[in-house]
């Protein structure tokens, strides 16, 4: 039985005060085990991104406790927090956030640069990761010259390049057509399967959610149910057979 990498107890987040107060999250309890894939599902505005940002330590909760890889989130500050963000997490945001004037390779190298890796080492590692997402031949293209699906693969390569333990992905297929989306999905789940990387995916795509080990349903900032795939009768559907190395 694998241990818990993420434990949330009674997490709440509100914005504003008084009449303008808005409760985005209300008392969330959550456990995510090492190597698990979890889909956070819910309607637009239900608080999915907010929850993911808090779990990824990009935002702090208004109240509640959060423990990440055995450390209390509140105690994490400064250098320790930066190291955790850099070495333990990989991010795929709702938008690409690529530096469009820089090359694909430079975009993928960025987390390694921040990690102060030597230039030869980081280049080798970035090229290796680009090969994994099948973008080796685009390494020296400008990021803005890529198609949407290619950009999303660059983003995944960037999330992956630092060998993270957890990848947080916010709508990784949201901007893509279903065929391209499937390629990205396969890529993410193969990482989960082959490398044991914990996946936390925010989505409102039921097909994508169905492939995760577990689904967490959010409604108006509350957990309204959980589904554990392996305890359910219907097996995961595979939208198409596309696979990646």
């Amino acid at each position: 039985m694998s241990s818990s990498v993420l434990t949330a107890r009674n997490l709440s987040k509100h914005y504003g005060t008084g009449d303008a107060r808005f409760d985005a999250l209300r008392g969330i309890d959550l456990d995510i085990r090492e190597g698990e894939s979890v889909a956070i599902v819910g309607k637009s505005g239900s608080g999915k991104s907010t929850l993911m940002h808090i779990l990824a330590l990009l935002d702090s909760p208004s109240s509640g406790e959060l423990e990440i890889v055995g450390q209390n989130a509140k105690a994490l500050k400064g250098r320790a927090l930066n190291t955790l963000r850099n070495a333990t997490f990989g991010f795929v945001f709702q938008q690409f956030f690529l530096n469009s004037h820089a090359t694909v390779l430079e975009n993928v190298i960025l987390p390694l640069k921040i990690a102060r890796l030597g230039s030869r080492e980081r280049k080798a590692k970035a090229l290796e990761t680009l090969a994994l997402v099948e973008l080796t031949e685009k390494a020296s293209s400008k990021a803005m010259d890529l198609s949407g699906g290619q950009k999303q693969r660059v983003v995944i390569a960037r999330a992956l390049v630092g060998d993270p333990r957890i990848i947080f992905a916010d709508e990784p297929t949201g901007n893509l057509d279903s065929a391209t989306g499937a390629v990205i999905e396969n890529l993410l789940f193969s990482l989960n399967r082959d490398r044991g990387i914990t996946l936390v995916i925010v989505t409102h795509d039921d097909d994508l959610a169905a492939r995760a080990d577990r689904r967490i349903y959010l409604k108006d900032g509350r957990l309204v149910g959980e589904g554990d795939l392996k305890s359910q009768a219907s097996p995961a559907t595979t939208p198409n057979g596309a696979t990646l190395a």
Binding site: A56, L58, G78, R79, L81, N82, T83, L84, R85, N86, A87, F91, F93, F97, L110, P111, I114, A115
Partner: peptide, 8 residues
């Protein structure tokens, strides 16, 4: 993005 990636 750079801060999210751990830049101080």
């Amino acid at each position: 993005l750079m801060k999210a990636m751990g830049m101080s």
